[in-house]
Amino acid sequence: MRPLTEEETKTFFEKLSKYIGENIKLLIDRPDGTYCFRLHKDRVYYVMEETMKKAANISRENLVSFGTCFGKFTKSGKFRLHITALDFLAPYAKYKIWVKPSAEQQFLYGHHVMKSGLGRITENTPQYQGVIVYSMSDLPLGFGVAAKSTEDCRRVDPMTVVTFHQADIGEYIRSEDTLT
């Protein structure tokens, strides 16, 4: 376990800011305690200071997880967000889309969101913007990337992909053993 280097922090924040913009500040500067990001086995964990100190006593091989895993650094040095980060992304999300109940299951099985399944979308969403996917009852289901901007969404035909799937809460079951 160690703090992120400056370079890693930058990569990580760049990825996070695609979804929550400058709201990252709210994650770092919290009134209810000191929270920090820690790297462990290439994964970034968002953890309270006290918990981190306690977890530091456990040897590296034996430490499975602590705090919330936000994602991992790939071998090529890029950062990949995991679904476990959704709890922190959803409240601060800048761009959201809502999927119809009929398309919910498709998304939860790892498919992209089609125009036909699109319920609502935040105004002025640019193309390739990171978006959080909600169900119509405002339950965060996952996140993805907008394949079409809001304006384009109006024009395209129903079978066009409007949001690329990145992660969904179905992964808690599908990839249970890789999530930490």
Binding site: M1, F13, I28
Partner: peptide
């Protein structure tokens, strides 16, 4: 690397700086 349990406020300010 920075120490794991170091000055937390410094770490925070460094991160805000990057932001």
């Amino acid at each position: 690397f920075e120490p794991n349990v170091g000055d937390m406020s410094k770490e925070k300010s460094a991160q805000l700086d990057i932001l």
